[in-house]
Design a protein around this nucleic acid. Structure first.
Lengths: 105, 105
DNA sequence: AACTCACATGATTAATATTTCATATGAAAA
DNA sequence: TTTTCATATGAAATATTAATCATGTGAGTT
């Protein structure tokens, strides 16, 4: 239950950068370059995060020429996000929970 | 999107100890002492984690004499856990995702 | 009132995760 | 086949979190 659980599923959502990546893929699949543009920061950093997300099957990859197109596993992710949105609405009127961070678009 | 999101909702599930606390409250509400017994470790540490969980309204507290009874916000938490269980079944046959960590009882 | 009990809190230390930097790889273009 | 583009990878540096230790607080007991 120790180190492994840190690399686990939920860690992907509790990290700002990874959450940003997830959110920016809600619309449509994007290449790494495009993701970097959207979320900002170093390419290598985004790449590291993409690996985590892929490992947990939150994202899928597909090669296309020399690009790699990442897409969101919506089946899991969308209901998850909705669940938390609802939770916040119901419980966190004005609590300091950082509610804004996942309520994207 | 920085430090705040770390203290955010999902962080509670990505931490082994906090997840253990959540799981041990699925059955019934427990006092701090009982939780400590179940999850092990120092009382103060458990207490710190309980605060996070309470802040995010994942747990509720109720005073009872000199004890404090913590209960789980099942409405949010249960469907969340189910969602991930399903995700793991569907996607992570044998991937090194630490799948065991939340599939508790 | 002094004493426990049950728990919380704050500061310090230890553990882990994320960022950055330098560089590697692999696909297409020239 | 050299070069460039798009992305990945590894190691070192930083930042963030969690665990520990010492102590505080408040409710009930004696």
């Amino acid at each position: 239950m120790k180190s492994r659980s840190y690399d686990s599923f939920f860690a992907n959502f509790s990290n700002g950068t990874r959450l940003a990546i997830i959110l920016c893929l809600k619309e449509k699949a994007l290449s790494v370059g495009e993701i970097v543009e959207k979320v900002g920061g170093e390419q290598s950093n985004v790449s590291h995060h993409l690996e985590h997300l892929r490992r947990c099957k939150i994202l899928n990859v597909e090669k296309k020429g020399k690009k790699r197109i990442y897409s969101l596993n919506k089946k899991t992710v969308m209901p998850m996000l909705r669940l938390v949105e609802k939770h916040v609405c119901n419980n966190c009127e004005s609590c300091p929970m950082g509610c804004g961070s996942y309520a994207g678009g």
